[in-house]
Nucleic acid binder design. Structure first.
Length: 785
DNA sequence: TTACGGTCACTTTTT
DNA sequence: GTGACCGTAA
């Protein structure tokens, strides 16, 4: 272990070698958090304090889980397969598969992703004749997921008004529908697993006796339910080793509860709190900037990053007149970084608050001929052709899955229209069965075409009985008519390739999971040595005196094949949406939202669109902790940079088809002057239209659009030109943002001014004729009142 | 059944 | 500005 612990700093060393007690590691950005987590596991095992099967490590993303797995096996010569390392959802799925009967689920239960869940909800509401104007399906989805994440079943939800009562009623109906169909949504995976452990004392005792070491990554992102699940597993005697950073909590909007850190500290009486404050990523000025910014937040556990690296380059700040100009500047700087700085494209990232901002930058990069990659967007398993193929596969495994059924019953089209489907849905409701099972009850022409669909599925099911997973997928794609359909489709070539890629994915899955290449897709193979263990009766409730040998439980780790290859592959498809870009891995400039950048690092980082209303985002003003979360987001963005950091904003920006005039982000006022280098003159807040008052309701006056003709005062909202020469142009009586009229071009708004006297020019964006530069001494511009 | 056109919304997102 | 979704016309 000397070499294991070598090169750890004192805090890291202390964290890795902590006694077997609850511990909270406050790990700042770039402080070696993952390294500590992995080394901790390796050290525990090497010292004989733990064996692989007693280790449970939880992460939020599959990527993080994979990284942990691979770095661990590089560190440890021993077999890591006995460990449970995965996402909350992945681990819960694993447990539910093993104990599906105790959890009240069929062995072949399917997982609904967010889109599946929404269509399931829509189908439910349609069947119940619920007004989807009054009760938007999306809102119901949010309501249900939120309740589940609080650990609440319909009976437990507090509902006072009739509106919420309706939601509760629909929540109850949705649960029944899911149960009948044998499907679970994402939060259900967690809640079911939580309830399984909570209600089943012997099972709980079994897992508590097993997982003596529980390690949690990104603890600040856990929600209430996840924390409750962890507490159940920890019981009275197991240590939780939680690593997190309250300053990087940026997912409150999806239920993350930073409060879990304080609760954990209190409830587990944590005596081991270690702060990792040594940063190995960023140069001094960058870190100073980040520290100064985050110091403006009030509710913090308190932490200050330091570095041994020198100051490095100052943080460069640029004010542009328009978003186009901002993009132009970014591209020029990128060019310089590549050509003069010798940076690889992939070492450069352009970050923005919202996805809509990427378009202008992309456009400019294309024109400059610089390769780039945008993160986000459609992922592999979310593509419609892939989802269609998966739906056929799901129907083989579970004919009751109405979501899958409805998706492909008429795709490719086979004469089963909305009318027929409605008839079928009515029959299903009448007999309380799935749509597939209701087919015999539909008469007439509709019944005939539905019958042939039923025959198709039956045929696929029979023919694939002995086939391997890749063969099954290939067969389904062919016999379902999907491949033929896309062959004849004009733009179907890409989709066809994706279907082939799905077959490849199945092959890869089979080999990664260690199945034989010709293992039938629907066979359960028991491990040699593992007896077909009798499962725990579902009647074993808390308080039961049934004593079970631990070995008699179906433990997925002892018996990893409790999932058939097909069920495993379908889970995999739902739980891991896959990569999203064809250009993945290419040498390209990286474009992404700040959220997507969390956990990554780049030599040079551009943070763009630093304007009030955009970043911090206007919608965050209404949320309780909104501004603080925006500030944490900015903190995350800054700390992505290793050597070069650029901040930029634009006076005017095209957004949602309208030009809006923004003032620079308040975050600039929270950064130390000493670390910044303004490439454009910094215009003091006071010299603008009366400055900004932090008491003003932000999100209203500041986003007034002169071109929309708001109240007169809002005209003043247009910022004055930032450039010295433009200031002189302002003497001509024109200002950026002003509405003007031209005899030939009509109405427009001034977007920039430059020059003075006879050379003074104005850039005007005309409503009908686009943007033009006009010499003020020639053009007869009239100010519109 | 499909195709087109109008309407709407639009922060961040993993599982 | 743009994509998603829904309703109606062919």
């Amino acid at each position: 272990m000397p070499e294991l612990l070598a090169n750890l700093n004192p805090e890291q060393y202390a964290a890795v070698t902590l006694p077997n007690e609850p511990a909270l590691i406050l790990a700042g950005a770039g402080s070696g958090k993952t390294r500590v987590l992995i080394t901790r596991i390796a050290w525990l095992i090497q010292q004989g304090f733990a064996s692989p099967p007693t280790v449970l490590a939880v992460t939020f993303t599959n990527k993080a889980a994979r990284e942990m797995m691979s770095r661990l096996s590089a560190l440890l010569p021993i077999d890591t397969r006995g460990m449970w390392i995965g996402t909350f959802h992945g681990l819960c799925n694993r447990m539910l598969r093993a104990h599906h009967r105790d959890a009240g689920l069929p062995a072949t239960f399917q997982i609904l992703d967010t889109a599946d869940q929404l269509s399931s909800i829509k189908r439910l509401m349609k069947g119940l004749n619920v007004d989807d104007e009054k009760y938007p399906p999306k809102n119901l989805q949010y309501f249900i997921n939120n309740a589940k994440e609080q650990g609440l079943r319909p009976d437990q939800v507090d509902a006072s008004d009739s509106f919420n009562l309706k939601f509760v009623e629909l929540y109850r109906a949705y649960e029944q529908q899911c149960q009948r169909e044998g499907v679970v949504d994402f939060p259900e995976l967690l809640l079911r697993c939580y309830e399984l452990l909570a209600h089943n004392a012997p099972l709980r005792a079994h897992y508590q006796a097993r997982f003596r070491q529980i390690l949690v990554d990104e603890f600040q992102d856990t929600n209430k339910l996840q924390y409750a699940w962890l507490k159940l597993l920890a019981g009275q005697s197991n240590a939780i080793f939680a690593v997190g950073d309250d300053d990087q909590s940026i997912y409150a909007f999806r239920g993350a509860n930073v409060g879990n850190m304080l609760d954990f500290e209190r409830e587990f009486n944590v005596r081991n709190l270690i702060k990792l404050e040594q940063n190995y990523r960023s140069h001094g000025y960058i870190l100073d900037t980040a520290n100064a910014l985050i110091a403006h937040n009030s509710r913090r556990l308190g932490k200050n990053l330091r570095t041994d690296a020198g100051h490095g380059e100052p943080v460069r700040v640029y004010e542009a007149a328009t978003d186009m100009q901002e993009a132009g500047w970014i591209v020029e700087e990128i060019r310089a970084l590549i050509n003069n700085g010798g940076l690889a494209r992939s070492e450069i990232a352009v970050l923005y608050r919202s996805n809509a901002q990427s378009r202008t930058i992309e456009h400019t990069l294309v024109n400059a001929g610089i390769a780039y990659r945008v993160y986000g967007g459609l992922r592999f398993f979310e593509r419609q052709e892939v989802k269609h193929a998966l739906a056929y596969l799901r129907l083989i495994d579970n004919p009751n899955d109405d979501t899958a059924f409805a998706r492909v019953v008429n795709f490719p089209t086979r004469g089963i229209g909305a009318r027929s489907i409605e008839q079928l849905a009515d029959a299903a409701r009448l007999y309380g069965c799935s749509m597939a099972a209701a087919i015999p009850y539909v008469t007439g022409k509709a019944g005939t075409s539905l019958g042939s669909f039923a025959n198709l599925i039956a045929k696929i099911r029979a023919e694939t009985e002995r086939m391997s997973l890749p063969e099954t997928v290939e067969y389904v794609v062919r016999v379902s008519g999907l491949s033929e359909f896309y062959q004849n489709e004009r733009e179907g070539q890409d989709r066809l390739e994706n279907l082939q890629e799905l077959v490849n994915a199945a092959t890869a899955f089979v080999s990664e999971e260690g199945y034989g290449l010709d293992t039938p897709a629907r066979s359960i193979r028991l491990n040699p040595g593992a007896t077909a263990a009798p499962e725990l009766g579902s009647s074993a409730d808390e308080g039961d005196t049934v004593v079970l040998e631990a070995a008699s439980l179906t433990d997925p780790a002892q018996n990893p094949d409790t999932m058939t290859p097909l069920a495993g592959f379908l889970s995999h498809a739902s739980l891991e949406a896959g990569e999203n870009q064809a250009q993945a891995g290419q040498e390209a400039v990286q474009l992404m939202t700040v959220h997507a950048a969390k956990g990554l690092e780049f030599t040079a980082v551009f943070i763009t669109g630093l304007e009030e209303g955009l970043f911090p985002h206007e919608n965050s003003a209404t949320e309780a902790d909104g501004l603080e979360e925006e500030r944490r987001l900015m903190y995350v963005a800054i700390t992505r940079a290793k050597e070069r950091l650029y901040l930029s904003f634009a006076q005017s920006r095209m957004l949602h088809g309208q030009t809006r005039y923004n003032v620079r982000s308040r975050f600039f006022d929270e950064l130390p002057e000493t670390t910044l280098k303004w490439l454009t003159p910094k215009v003091e807040a006071g010299s603008r239209w009366g400055g900004r008052s932090d008491n003003a309701g932000w999100g209203r006056d500041w986003f007034a659009r002169p071109d929309r003709g708001g109240p007169a005062a809002n005209f003043e909202a247009a910022p004055l030109p930032a450039f010295a020469n433009e200031q002189r142009a302002a003497d001509t009586g024109f200002r950026v943002g002003q509405q003007v009229f031209h005899t030939k071009f009509g109405e427009g708004a001034i977007t920039a001014l430059e020059g003075s006297g006879a050379d003074a020019r104005a850039q005007v964006r005309f409503k009908r004729h686009g943007e033009k530069w006009l010499a003020l001494s020639v053009a007869k511009l009239q100010v519109v009142e």
